[in-house]
Nucleic acid binder design. Sequence first.
RNA 1: GGGCCUGUGGGCUAGCUUGGUAUACUUGUGGCUUUGGGAGCCAUUGACUCCGGUUCAAAUCCGGGCAGGCCCA
Length: 458
Amino acid sequence: MVERAALSDKRYPIKGMNVWTPYGWKIMRFVDTYIRRELDATGHDEVCFPLLIPETEFKKEKDHIKGFDSEVYWVTHAGLNELDVRLVVRPTSETAMYPMFALWVRSHQDLPLKTYQIVNTFRYETKQTRPFIRVREIHFFESHTCHDSEEDAQRQIEEDLEILRRIMKELCLPYFLLRRTEWDKFPGAHYTVGIDTVMPNYRTLQLGSVHHYRTNFSVPYDITYEDENGEHKHVHQTTYGMSERLLGALISVHGDDDGLVLPPAVAPFQVVIVPILSKKNAEVVTAAAERLRDELTAGGIRVKLDDRDDRPGSKFYDWEIKGVPLRLELGGRDIENNVVTFARRDTSEKGTIGLESLVPGVRLILDTIMHDMEAKAWEFQNSSVRHIESADEIPKEDTAEQRVYSFGWCGCDECGHAFEDAHDIKILGTPYIPEEFEGKCIICGKPTKTKAYAARTM
RNA sequence: GGGCCUGUGGGCUAGCUUGGUAUACUUGUGGCUUUGGGAGCCAUUGACUCCGGUUCAAAUCCGGGCAGGCCCA
């Protein structure tokens, strides 16, 4: 699908580094547009930091290094010289930004500092790579904030989740918010909230995460401010990020056997017009199709008039693979009846729209498509979870019966590791938004009020 | 980290065992014809992953590099 819809070209001769081709990049840009819109609207300022980080800065936070040093790229030479201080190609930008934050933040009046950037980042992935889902050059956004207190940092996380809700609504994507286990949190974080979605094979895909750092980075990077009383204090920090995996999720969650199904909000073309010509009426129909296009464009709808010299059926298949939400067919019969025929990509429902109410008619259908796609995706995710009382209910292999599992967990590391190892599954975490629960730990049997989620992951 | 496999026009592929002429389909281009679910006909462009070795001769055999895929940890 990635190839046939021309989303990316993976023939570039570096493993895990693919070329964004125009159609795929257009979709990604729409995703980025929503991210930018939401972050700007909540008082974040966009910045752009250098790609390279001196080894000396990179090594300041110990856990962070341990988490990343097996997967960073190094610049060791420049021209003909070997560098005295090697440079890290950013795997994420904490260690690039925080030395600068230390210079920028001086007073409590500088806080909160809320920044973000949309850039590419590099991780030396050794597993099998696949477009959008596991790549070595990752297109993502990362927001980094500094606060005068843990409480204010916590408020930032609530705001991040609100931003997430709005973005995911545009993408019609469901998600879990799970507080990651201690052994799986981001290197250097106080805690991590993972954002996961379920793929059609019931494996989960992490789309992004939100981290609370407390002062774990501000201490080694010496990011301090002077409060009202003249005291110097370390800032509390958070980060939030999501990647091109959002596009991977869009493809997998919404797509069907005929190709992509794009949510109207991110479709490069929301409507495609296919004129149905015959020898006699070619000129009339072409002119009418052009008027249709102009009217929709004037109405603020992204529309493509497919005037290629090809048969209509072939064009239909083409735009179905590309996931265009709504197809309009205009032929002699439609013109006589003063209507245009439509076909929905998500349900393949067909009907007609009166030409006198073209723009509102198309808008209504696009809105309906969006709501239906969102509802259908959430329904799938909700139905994918199975609550289990015994770990024996988890299939040993990756079978069609596999699901996402919820179960009681006492919360200790030993039980957690034992469960993961015995069943070849990953504990995604505990609900970030608390869920009422009373039961027994699935491993040790102790009574617990903690529910955990686990799944096999992509 | 360990093991196995593969590289032939833009895509997919035959040929490799047994060395000699590179095959089909598709796509692209031009033309004719056609247009309410992947039409047809004619013409045409276009390839042996790279370096080295063996040989009169290498897509084919040997060595190495690069790239990709799969399995296990």
